[in-house]
Design a protein around this nucleic acid. Sequence first.
RNA 1: GUCUCCAUAGCUCAAUUGGAUAGAGCGUCGGCCUCCGAAGCCGAAGGUUGCUGGUUCGAUUCCAGUUGGAGACGCCA
Length: 672
Amino acid sequence: MNIQNMIAERFGAALNALGVDPAAYLDMIRPSQDPKFGDFQANFAMPLGKKLGKAPRDVAAEVVERLQYDDMLEAPEIAGPGFINLRVKTDWLARLAQSESVDERLGVESVATPRRYVLDYSAPNVAKPLHVGHIRSTMIGNALAHILKFLGHHVVSDNHLGDWGTQFGMIIYGYRNFLNEAAYKEAPVEELARLYRLVRQLVDYYAAKGQDEKLRADVVAASAKLDAQKAVCADAKARDDAEKTKESKDALKKANKERERLGKALEAAQEQYDGARKKIEGVENDPEVFALAQGRETIGQDVLNETSKLHHGDEANCALWRQFIPQCMKDVDRIYWALNVKFDVTLGESFYNDRLPGLVERLKKQGVARETEGAIGLFLPNQEIPMLIQKSDGAYLYATTDLATLEYRRDTFQPDAILYVVDFRQGLHFEQLFEAAKYLNMGDVELKHVKFGTVLGEDGKPFKTRAGKAVELRSLIQEARERAYEIVAANDAARPENERFTEEEKVETARRVGVGALVYADLSQNRESDYVFSYEKMLAMNGNTATYMQYAYARVRSIFTKGGIDVDALRREFAAGKRTLTLDVPEERALAFELVKFQSALENVVRDYRPNFLTAYLYELANKYSAFFEKCPVLRADDEDVRSNRLLLCDLTARTIAKGLELLGIQTVERM
RNA sequence: GUCUCCAUAGCUCAAUUGGAUAGAGCGUCGGCCUCCGAAGCCGAAGGUUGCUGGUUCGAUUCCAGUUGGAGACGCCA
């Protein structure tokens, strides 16, 4: 149940009665920001007054006069310039909370018209270990999939693995040239990852060497330009000192600005050069790697050749690929297991390989794709540069695969919407892809790039896997579990001996708490903003964290345990009308009001695919519960009715928190 | 060079999409456990929402300009 919508309906009727089309005004009914303005406020009287040429307060009064409210709302108050402040009647609220507390779905209605969604998220490159950046796509997508399903939509979550690109050329090359068989037998995934890193290092090494001279020359040139500009600035300064005219001043300003720009250009050139040097020295200072590098000047091309052979069905390479994939997947799946993430389907890039030639042919026949500088480009109406769909060596690109994927999804799932949960830096790619989709007979399917910001390092620069220092997700998860374990163990040791956890329980509790903290740290952020990675923040377990909610949940549950309460019997009593919920103190009412807003919170998430609206809601709920918990004794309440009342509120709180966390992909614990 | 995004408390971030006195966490300071779990609660300090204009009843939110930061820009994904 969504109270806001109910109120909106009533205002709709009132506005109609006034001869006003309510469409533009009903979404101006909002929860109040300050409790002293009531529970909800209607803000439309100001613009409407303007339109009708009447005083907003008079308009407000006229609307209120026609509003049917008295079963559910206190008398509306008109305040300030024309705000209509609304307060839900407490007994009405109590009835609603009671009905939701005995409802399987916590009062959340299924949507009237379900849509079919395909969600594309996670999609790691399986040849590389997952790093901290992968948690965003994975967990945002996972949360959205759960929430959409719970609201009654039809959802297919699809993990579009990167299992077919250049990275496998590298591994194949490494396997052929550098394999340590003993290590491969012992720990295949680690060995493959080592090979990948080694080959990558060598490819980068020769690429850097090839550019070394040019980059150095760039630095020298940039430096010379800067020096020349400095002279220009000095002249301009002398002239300005002499003339002091507006003209000379402007000229000086302009010269200084140019100097600044050139300074930055020099810095950028230097950075590029340093980067290349670092790659070169990294190899040359490591005798072992340097020895391996000898005589492999063509490694870059060789790797591409291995990739190309794979794509064109070379038997030996395909066999190797088939051998590697399960190994790589084992590694990836371990992470998904730890994060408690599952997919409905996992169709990687390789799945679409045999559809690519036909796709390109058709687009060529349609006349929208044609040769450009040796490659095949797809020419789009609103884009200056064509989207390349086939390289000059015949290999395909990820744009090609994405187009083939669109067709497949169209035919297989008949979606109303496809959501891509992908880093915002790929924005241009999706703009082009969605434009290109118009050639694919996609109908009116909604294509949406659910973009998210970059994870930055402590230096404020984007985290890059190749930088070598990327924090692997596996070790982050490990760390989270260890920190949680310490707290769990310390807490446990303070308990009476007969209530203590077994070792197994401690480990499992630590896993849920630690991973929950990690996941929550990510989901609680507005997905579009970049954020600075810090261990402290990702692993925090107090404040606005999953732990806080898990803790609230565990506290509620312990009340039921301690009191020996039969929850089912309690719910039955209320369901059968043997008891009636009342909200007698402000903390009870505030808690109930928050509980009843669950559906609205979920709807807010879905409106723009922002899981942080749900974390914000849960935090608010846990907060309200803490206030209630402080002020309102439950088991110690001396009145039987009060006790049952509060127990019912506790139960609904626990279930709402558990459901909310579950939708986010976070598990609860009975004790912690 | 072209285009896109961002700028909010000391730090990390919110702000239900134009609403009333901009909120949290961390950190700082001060209170609360013979009482259902203190991973908690209550309170204090901390702000010209980068800057300048504009739009209007009303702007952190929309527009223009400006400064600073990040990113993208055909054979990587």
